[in-house]
């Protein structure tokens, strides 16, 4: 930026200097054009206003309030007391809260890695079968979990995971009585078990989105690589995956956010237990803010969670643009 290029000139200089002579030659047309431009800009702002007001009122303003609350010790009703960064210190030193953040990161495996990988394979398989009843039925069935509310999925799965639930029945039929257990009550299996509920819900979304992405890839590419004698794997990694980079980035972004800010599945299935083996920031923030009425600490944890989500998601966005 040390050597100013032409288009980076300060607009004031441009108006005062270069525009002067032109203005004196064709003043009316220039003024009219400016007025039109100004009117267009004004119309733009007016059109933007409702959305902007909603965004400021329901996103920006609460965010600023959240930042403000995070510096206070406040029960949500009475007089608040200024405590500086004490709430942030608590977030970063309380092993319970740190443990819940770690659990959220482990959930990324189940909310992101599994659904996107499985979705890629399924989308490729569905593409390879002829369009017809079977293909659309497969798409519909895979997408079904997506229309079920996460809270309901959590309840239904907690029945299936119970001692006498479907999972253990199936394991019994195939001779695996030895490993049956109450999956959500076991410290080692509870987190993977709730994670798999997320995988089940999100795989359908991933498959359908990736399938539309595949549809946009030029079929000539597939023909070409097949003429070159490539097999399924070669085709998958050379054509399909690179062609789906944008879709994959969108899905990774969405699912990582779902993992880090997960709440409903866990609230309805384990409520963070057994012990704190499935505790995630969403549950902690809810409890601290609404049950313990410690709005300050809950806000601080919420802000930290937001920063964490951004810190993970922004580099992913950068990744998608890097090779464009």
């Amino acid at each position: 930026m040390s050597s100013p290029s032409l288009d980076a000139r300060p607009s004031a200089a441009r108006d005062a200097g270069a525009d002067g002579p032109i203005l004196s030659v064709r003043p009316t047309r220039r003024v009219a054009a400016r007025a039109t431009a100004r009117r267009a800009a004004l119309t733009g702002w007016i059109l933007l206003l409702p959305a902007l007001a909603a965004y400021i009122g329901f996103v920006i303003w609460p965010l600023i309030q959240g930042v403000q609350y995070s510096f206070y010790d406040w029960n949500g009703i009475g007089l608040a007391e200024w405590v500086g960064v004490q709430n942030y210190v608590t977030v970063f030193t309380d092993p319970v809260l740190l443990g819940s953040i770690l659990n959220a990161f482990i959930l990324i495996v189940f909310f992101t890695v599994i659904p996107v990988t499985v979705g890629l394979v399924l989308a490729t398989l569905i593409r390879s079968i002829r369009a017809g009843v079977f293909s659309s039925a497969a798409q519909t069935i895979l997408f079904l979990p997506q229309i079920i509310p996460l809270a309901a999925a959590g309840i239904a799965w907690s029945w299936m995971y119970s001692q006498t639930g479907t999972i253990n029945q199936i394991l019994g039929w195939i001779g695996l009585e030895g490993i049956t257990r109450s999956w959500l009550a076991d410290y080692a299996t509870a987190l993977p078990a709730v994670g798999l509920i997320g995988s089940w819900v999100l795989t359908g979304l991933c498959t359908v989105l990736l399938l539309t992405g595949i549809g946009k890839i030029d079929t000539a590419l597939y023909e070409a690589i097949r003429l070159d004698g490539a097999g399924w794997w070669r085709e998958f990694f050379t054509i399909t995956v690179p062609g789906l980079r944008q879709e994959i980035v969108v899905l990774v972004t969405l699912t990582v956010i779902a993992a880090l800010s997960s709440f409903d599945i866990i609230y309805t299935s384990t409520q963070g237990g057994p012990g704190r083996s499935t505790l995630v920031p969403g549950i902690s923030i809810f409890r601290i803010g609404f049950t313990q009425s410690d709005v300050g600490l809950a806000s601080a944890f919420g802000i930290v969670l937001m920063v964490l989500v951004l810190a993970v998601v922004l580099p992913i966005q950068r990744l998608s643009k890097a090779n464009d």
């Binding site: 600023i64 930042v67 406040w74 949500g76």
Partner: peptide, 20 residues
């Protein structure tokens, strides 16, 4: 700017909540 605004707002002493 947003952070600064929030910070100023937060420190301006207009604490949330009301006295009983």
């Amino acid at each position: 700017a947003a952070t600064a605004a929030a910070g100023v707002f937060a420190m301006s002493g207009c604490a949330p909540g009301a006295a009983a």
